[in-house]
C-alpha cells in the first residue's frame, strides 16, 4: 500500500509547487515595492569607482534635489540595455547617482570608460553590502530619492524610454514641484 502511495508523491509535489507559483504570480517583479519607501536612505559611504577621485558616493550626496540612484554592474545585460538611455537622461539634466554593484576591481571604471559616464557620482559596492541595505534584488535597479534624501520609488529592471515617460518622469516631476 505504501509502495502504491509513493507513486502519488509527484502529484503532491506538483500541488505544492503550483500553490507557490500561483502566489508568486500576484507579484510584479518590475515594480517591487521597497521596504524603504518613504524612509530615509540607509547611511553609506562608498569608495570611488572612477580613477583619480578620492570620494565615491555617500548618503549625503543624495540630498538637495530629487534624483535617481541607479544600481548597475558591468556584468549585467539589462544595464547594457538601459545605459545609452541613461546617457541621454544625463544629457537632459537629470541627476543620476551610480552604485556599482558586486563588480570586480576595475570593472566599473572600464565600463564607464567604454560606454560613457552618465553619473554625477559613482560609488563602489564590491561585496554588495550597501545593496543589501537598500534591498537590491538584482541589477539594474533604480531608486527615486527626494530632496530630503528619502526613497520615494523603486524600479526593477532596465529604464526604457517607455518606463521613463510613464513611470519615473511623472514621479520625479511631482517631487520637483513639491520642492
Amino acid at each position: 500500500m505504501i509502495r502504491r502511495l509513493m507513486f502519488f508523491v509527484p502529484v503532491v509535489a506538483l500541488a505544492v509547487l503550483a500553490g507557490l507559483l500561483w502566489l508568486g504570480l500576484g507579484r510584479d517583479p518590475e515594480a517591487l515595492p521597497s521596504t524603504l519607501i518613504d524612509r530615509p536612505l540607509p547611511a553609506f559611504e562608498l569608495a570611488p569607482v572612477r580613477t583619480g577621485e578620492d570620494h565615491g558616493l555617500a548618503t549625503t550626496d543624495l540630498t538637495g534635489r530629487p534624483m535617481l540612484l541607479n544600481v548597475f554592474a558591468s556584468w549585467c545585460v539589462g544595464c547594457r540595455l538601459e545605459h545609452p538611455f541613461l546617457m541621454e537622461l544625463a544629457g537632459r539634466g537629470v541627476v543620476i547617482q551610480g552604485l556599482d554593484w558586486k563588480d570586480p576591481p576595475g570593472a566599473g571604471a572600464a565600463w564607464l570608460a567604454e560606454h560613457g559616464d552618465p553619473y554625477a557620482r559613482v560609488g563602489d559596492d564590491p561585496d554588495g553590502r550597501t545593496g543589501i541595505d537598500l534591498g537590491v534584488s538584482g541589477a539594474p535597479e533604480t531608486f527615486i530619492v527626494d530632496a530630503r534624501g528619502r526613497v520615494r520609488h523603486r524600479h526593477v529592471g532596465p529604464i526604457t524610454p517607455e518606463v521613463w515617460e510613464t513611470e519615473l518622469r511623472p514621479i520625479l516631476q511631482r517631487l520637483e514641484a513639491e520642492g
Binding site: V11, L14, A15, A18, L21, W22, G24, L25, G26, R27, D28, P29, E30, V77, G78, L81, G138, V156, G157
Partner: peptide
C-alpha cells in the same frame, strides 16, 4: 512575468494564470 529576464514578453499576470492553470491541469 513571474521572473524578470532579458527574454520576457510583455508582463501579464492574467495570461500567466491561464498558462499556469493549464500546466498544472495537464501535469496534474
Amino acid at each position: 512575468g513571474v521572473l524578470t529576464s532579458v527574454h520576457a514578453f510583455a508582463v501579464d499576470p492574467a495570461r500567466g494564470t491561464a498558462i499556469l492553470g493549464f500546466t498544472v491541469l495537464a501535469t496534474g
